[in-house]
């Protein structure tokens, strides 16, 4: 039933340069689902919506358009595993589609650089492409059901909002990611303020670490209180936030109080598909994934 489709794989910054283990799991798992990844050679920062867009929107729009132009030239849509990059591309496309004069501004900036841009390539989040296959198709790929694993699902903000510019049927409290998690045999647990922000975006992680970590701590505390074995995400920046904030909190507390494994969706699915922890980069985490592996592999 696997129908092959090809996308230009947009890496961004945080995934290839800080969490290549997440990148590894995506490269292992997606082709096995019939989703083929072509390199987007020479891509830059998306650029980050919370910082670069906040500093100078025309620069953000021009650089985002350049990345989209590279995909357009390759003849594919972009696929990304970062909510921030996803948000940048969705919003940048919306702006040039709604305001043709802004597309002309971008084309003017590109003049003589050998870049052709017509805003024709779309951008998709990998979880959108996986959900299009459907939870049933995912279930068929499972050879090692993750029975008994309690997972706290974190969607992340830019995957869902602004909802008018997103493809999801429900604008509030969606369930698509929970369905995909449960397709692996794991259980998606209920927890307080599930849809709250991780606290990393908007340039807050970069400029005000205490506030940023405090938001993450509230979220992690809620997940721990629900008794989850791990927090699951689909965004390299949320992933960084949950990994790094726990290390920072432990350092401040002088004790290893925070040990909640942080797992990316393709890592979880890869385990259920029978791949080994090393193939999925699960041995390269900041917070050890051992408790999850013990429960899954015995």
């Amino acid at each position: 039933m696997t129908v092959s489709q090809t996308y230009s794989f947009f890496l961004g910054c945080v995934m290839p340069n800080r969490f290549p283990n997440v990148e590894k799991s995506i490269r292992e798992v997606l082709p096995r689902l019939g989703i083929h990844l072509e390199e987007l050679e020479g891509a830059s920062c998306c650029p980050a919506p919370g910082v670069i867009r906040s500093f100078d929107e025309p620069t953000w729009l021009a650089l985002a358009s350049r990345n989209l132009a590279l995909a357009e030239k390759a003849g594919h849509d972009i696929i990304t595993g970062c909510n921030g990059c996803y948000g940048t591309f969705k919003e940048a496309l919306h702006i040039v589609h709604e305001h043709p004069e802004k597309l002309r501004d971008v084309q003017k900036v590109f003049k003589g650089l050998g870049l052709r841009y017509r805003a024709e390539a779309d951008a998709k989040h990998l979880i959108e492409v996986v959900y299009d296959l459907g939870p049933d198709a995912i279930r068929e790929k499972v050879v090692r059901p993750l029975d008994g694993l309690e997972v706290a699902v974190h969607y992340g903000c830019h995957l869902l909002k602004p909802s008018v510019l997103r493809p999801w049927k429900k604008s509030a409290r969606p369930t698509f990611l929970d369905e995909l998690v449960e397709a692996t045999g794991a259980h998606s647990v209920k927890y307080k303020d599930k849809f709250q922000c991780c606290g990393a975006g908007g340039g807050v992680r970069g400029s005000n670490v205490p506030v940023s970590v405090d938001i993450a701590q509230e979220k992690i505390d809620n997940v721990l209180e629900a008794g989850a074995d791990c927090v699951l995400n689909v965004c390299s920046f949320c992933h960084l936030q949950f990994e790094m904030s726990q290390a920072q909190l432990n350092k401040e507390l002088g004790e290893e109080r925070y040990r909640l494994p942080v797992v990316y969706y393709t890592q979880l699915l890869g385990l259920a598909m029978g791949l080994g922890p090393k193939e999925l980069g699960l041995h390269k985490h900041v917070v050890s994934t051992e408790p999850v592996l013990r429960k899954v592999l015995g």
Partner: peptide
């Protein structure tokens, strides 16, 4: 090194030229 601007100096130069042109 990832296949981004990190592997392509000419692509980096293009990105830098765009930032000069927008005034960034």
């Amino acid at each position: 090194v990832p296949p981004t601007v990190h592997s392509h100096p000419d692509a980096l130069e293009q990105v830098q030229e765009i930032m000069r042109r927008t005034g960034f």
